[in-house]
Design a protein around this nucleic acid. Structure first.
Lengths: 141, 141
DNA sequence: TACCAACCTACCAAGTTGGTCTGAAGAACG
DNA sequence: CGTTCTTCAGACCAACTTGGTAGGTTGGTA
């Protein structure tokens, strides 16, 4: 299951996209609109900022804003940063060392293709796609 | 991430398939071959048995065996039973009540198609497919 | 300099994961 | 009948993750 880390992060970025006007948007407003505790939101933002998805400004008139246009964010990028990683098994994580049994593993090809499949799916959807509802997310299987 | 519940369950069923001979196979043997503690294996089996994937017999000469041929098991079925459910978000679980915001939810269609995608993927792979290595799990995206 | 908002750190309750341990009960076999 | 082998049921446990809350500090603007 996708945790609140991923789901809330998506909602925060959607909110920033919907209310973007060039200046910084305080999280107090996002928290109120999205009905998420401000304190919890603050814990979700550092990875998004470190990943370069958002820009921040301290102090009065400060807040956060998107660094790009909504169609320049893929959902994969957002979820990966928010959740840490989305690999289905340990041995497919980016930072994983090669598993000793990988050559004989009967399930690894299945996990590997699964990972590619979901990566492809979420990489083809952008933040802008989510903003315009009524869009069908086509896929062929 | 797929937990050990799902991954070990798969390995147990693969083992039962590889060593099937019509009679019951004691889990002691499976535990030794798969290098998984017998006690932990015993905790994974009830859902698989309740789901009708395996049959058991008490006592001497007893153990577990598959109830069908390996090509009659889909990976989706196995993982669903072992993991409980694989829905990416709460509102897509079988037992979930309709979410109040579902009509306006900007992300629900994305989750819904994601769920269908992975369900389709794992439903097209059978236990028999895993047994014959070198098989490519084709997908189109 | 006052104010505001990001930012950092610590803390906490509840649930999940990945086990272990003890024992009961059913079935076969000598 | 009793032993042996196996499933099966249940309690227990440590470590980790999730989903928060609380308090205070820093940095920037007006």
């Amino acid at each position: 299951m996708i945790s609140t880390k991923g789901r809330y992060s998506l909602r925060i970025l959607i909110d920033l996209a919907q209310h973007r006007n060039g200046s910084y948007i305080p999280m107090k407003d996002v928290a109120r609109r999205q009905n998420i505790s401000l304190k919890y939101i603050e814990r979700l933002l550092p990875p998004l900022k470190d990943g370069g998805l958002i820009d921040s400004l301290h102090g009065k008139g400060g807040g956060y804003k998107l660094t790009r246009e909504p169609d320049q964010y893929t959902i994969w990028e957002i979820l990966s940063l928010a959740e840490g990683n989305l690999a289905p098994v340990e041995c497919l994580r980016e930072d994983a060392e090669q598993c000793a049994r990988s050559a004989q593993c009967l399930t690894l090809p299945m996990w590997d293709n699964y990972y590619k499949l979901i990566k492809g799916y979420f990489s083809d959807i952008t933040l802008a796609d989510l903003l315009k509802r009524d869009v069908e997310y086509d896929y062929i299987i």
